[in-house]
C-alpha cells in the first residue's frame, strides 16, 4: 500500500476532492540533459508553468523502449557525466524548494548495479516518490521488491493497448501511485495526435473497466494541449516526454531557451 503521505497519492487525492478538476500534467525530462546544471531549474520552472508531477529520466546506454529523441537526450546526459549520485543530488535540490512529486524513470540495470537496497535508501532520502522501470515487468519485479518496500518507494507499472484485461487487473493490484497507460504500441516519441486519439479510445475504455484501484495517466505521443485534452479525457492525467525534450533541443543553448521551454509547458497545460 502506498503511504497516504506520499506526494503522488496526495495530488490525486486533491484532484478527487475538487469539483471540476483539471487533468494532471506529468512531464518527463532526462537528468543531465541538456546539461548537468539545468535539470533542477527546469523542474522548478515547469512546476511554475503547470506541471503537477515530474518524471526524471535516469539515462541508460541501451534505452531499448525509447525512440530517437530520448536516445539522444540519454546519450548526451551520459556524455555530460550524469551519475545516479548526481541524480539523487538534483532530487534533493528540488526538494529544498518544491513539493512536486518526483518519479524516477529508467532501466533496471543501473539500479541493480548500484544495489537495489542502496538505491531505494538514497531515493527515499532524496525525497523521491515513485519509480518507473519499463523493462522490469511484474514477473521480474521480485528483484527490487523487498528493498522498495523497506523504503516506501512505490513502483508504477505500465499497461499497453495489447495488455489483456486479466493482466491489467493484476497490474492494477501491483502498481502503486498510478498506472502508466502507454497509448500506442511503439517506442517513446512523437506521433500524429489525431491518429493517436482515434486508436486510443477503445484502449482507454478497457483501461477504465479493468484498472479501478489506481489513478491512470496516459502517455506516448502527446505533443500539444489539444492532444492531451483528447487523449486524457477519461483518465486523471497525461504524460509528455519526447515533445518536451524536442522543444529543449530546438532552443538550447540560445539565450532565453528555458523561457521557450516554459512557454511550451504552459501551453501544454492551459492551451493558447
Amino acid at each position: 500500500m502506498i503511504a497516504t503521505t506520499n506526494r503522488i497519492y496526495q495530488i490525486f487525492k486533491q484532484q478527487r476532492e475538487k469539483k471540476n478538476p483539471e487533468k494532471l500534467m506529468n512531464l518527463f525530462i532526462t537528468a543531465g540533459y541538456p546539461d548537468l546544471d539545468s535539470t533542477v531549474d527546469l523542474v522548478l520552472g515547469m512546476e511554475e508553468n503547470g506541471a503537477d508531477m515530474v518524471e526524471i529520466g535516469m539515462p541508460f546506454s541501451d534505452p531499448l523502449a525509447d525512440g530517437p529523441t530520448i536516445q539522444f537526450s540519454s546519450e548526451t546526459a551520459i556524455d555530460n557525466g550524469i551519475t545516479l549520485e548526481k541524480i539523487f543530488g538534483m532530487c534533493r535540490q528540488i526538494r529544498e524548494k518544491s513539493g512536486i512529486p518526483i518519479v524516477l524513470m529508467g532501466y533496471v540495470n543501473p539500479v541493480l548495479h548500484y544495489g537495489a537496497e542502496k538505491f531505494m535508501k538514497k531515493a527515499s532520502e532524496a525525497g523521491v516518490d515513485g519509480l518507473i522501470l519499463p523493462d522490469l515487468p511484474i514477473e521480474e519485479s521480485y528483484l527490487i521488491e523487498e528493498a522498495r518496500k523497506a523504503y516506501n518507494i512505490p513502483q508504477i507499472y505500465l499497461v499497453a493497448p495489447n495488455t489483456s484485461d486479466e493482466r491489467m487487473k493484476t497490474i492494477d493490484k501491483k502498481s502503486e501511485g498510478f498506472v502508466y497507460c502507454v497509448s500506442v504500441t511503439g517506442v517513446t516519441g512523437a506521433r500524429e495526435g489525431d491518429e493517436v486519439a482515434r486508436s486510443v479510445n477503445r484502449f482507454i475504455d478497457r483501461v477504465n473497466e479493468n484498472i479501478t484501484e489506481n489513478p491512470k495517466m496516459v502517455g506516448f505521443g502527446i505533443k500539444s494541449h489539444r492532444d492531451a485534452k483528447l487523449i486524457a479525457e477519461k483518465v486523471e492525467g497525461f504524460i509528455v516526454g519526447s515533445a518536451l525534450i524536442d522543444t529543449i533541443r530546438e532552443h538550447y543553448p540560445r539565450d532565453g531557451w528555458k523561457e521557450k521551454v516554459f512557454e511550451f509547458v504552459h501551453e501544454l497545460k492551459y492551451g493558447n
Binding site: 531499448l64 515487468p137 514477473e139 499497453a160 495489447n162 489483456s164
Partner: peptide, 19 residues
C-alpha cells in the same frame, strides 16, 4: 519462468509481454 539458475527471465517492456 525462463530461468537458468539466477540468470534469464524476461525483462521486456509491457508491450512485448503478449508477444
Amino acid at each position: 519462468q525462463g530461468y537458468y539458475g539466477e540468470f534469464g527471465g524476461k525483462f521486456v517492456p509491457e508491450i512485448l509481454i503478449p508477444a
